[in-house]
Amino acid sequence: MATRVTVWNEFRHERESDAVADVYPNGIHEVIADALADDFEVETATLDEPDHGLTETVLEETDVLTWWGHAAHDEVDDEVVDRVHDRVLDGMGLLVLHSGHYSKIFKRLMGTTCSLKWREAAETERLWVVEPSHPIADGIDEYVEVPEAEMYGERFDIPQPDTLVFNSWFEGGEVFRSGCCYTRGSGRIFYFRPGHETYPVYHQPEIRRVLRNAVAWLDSGSDSVPAFGNADPIESIDTSDDRSVH
């Protein structure tokens, strides 16, 4: 069965700003979905749909969820965040993109502020591959040059990644951990920095290749279901102790 991907986007900037609509006239989600459509079964969802398009049924049928948000993080309903959080722990992959670092779901999963430095100056970014053997870097040269990027700079307040795949350098001199892998419960998470709304980053072939690689990796998480709660002994022991307060 093909990997089932739900591409989520606020879809606010594209409807409110001509500058953004010029780059992503049908929404950032449609460009991301197009990058994935040849390899995966793809649907889209947006903020202003009922349940933000992320009903229990949709999430149960989603193997990998991609998340792009920026202007309306606070408008995402906590009940939906809980729902996504539970699905990640159960094994759904989560691809968090660019300013999604401030999303409720990413902050919940990281347990930190996820704050950083930033600057909008359409400057060059070099996205360096620091773990070339990782599947997410498959087919990518030593670095990807992004001609116009929003700068994100350290300190990036996140936990130490399980694996750092990409590290960015910006024309203004800053560096940033731009490709971070995590595991939470049975689910995998990948944070990927490139993708500002007024720059055509998601049209760039190398970036689209990374998105496809990331989805494939995110859908390779654990299928095992761990056992929790009271457990019978594996070996023969005396179970007559009656001091339990449970």
Rank of each mutant, 00 (worst) to 15 (best):
S115H: 14
R119W: 07
R119T: 10
E120M: 05
E120Y: 07
A121T: 10
T124S: 10
L127G: 04
W128D: 14
V130E: 08
E131Q: 14
E131I: 06
I136P: 00
I136T: 12
D138T: 07
I140C: 06
I140R: 09
I140K: 11
D141G: 13
E142W: 06
Y143K: 10
Y143W: 09
V144P: 02
E145L: 03
E145H: 06
E148R: 14
E148M: 12
Y152W: 06
Y152V: 00
Y152I: 00
G153R: 01
F156V: 02
I158T: 14
P159S: 13
P161N: 15
D162W: 03
T163H: 13
V165G: 03
F166Q: 06
N167Y: 04
W169L: 10
F170R: 08
G172P: 03
G173A: 02
V175K: 06
F176T: 01
S178A: 11
S178G: 04
S178W: 02
G179A: 05
G179E: 04
C180E: 13
T183R: 00
T183N: 01
G185V: 04
S186W: 14
I189Q: 04
F190Y: 15
F190C: 04
F192C: 09
F192L: 11
F192G: 12
P194A: 05
G195N: 04
T198P: 00
T198S: 15
T198F: 07
Y199H: 15
Y202S: 01
Q204E: 10
P205A: 12
P205E: 08
E206Y: 07
I207Q: 06
N213A: 02
N213W: 00
A214V: 01
A214I: 05
A216Q: 15
W217C: 05
W217S: 10
L218M: 04
L218E: 11
L218K: 07
D219N: 11
S220N: 08
S220L: 08
G221P: 13
G221T: 06
D223S: 13
D223W: 06
S224V: 05
S224T: 15
V225T: 14
V225L: 13
F228Q: 15
N230E: 11
D232K: 05
D232F: 02
P233V: 10
P233K: 01
I234R: 09
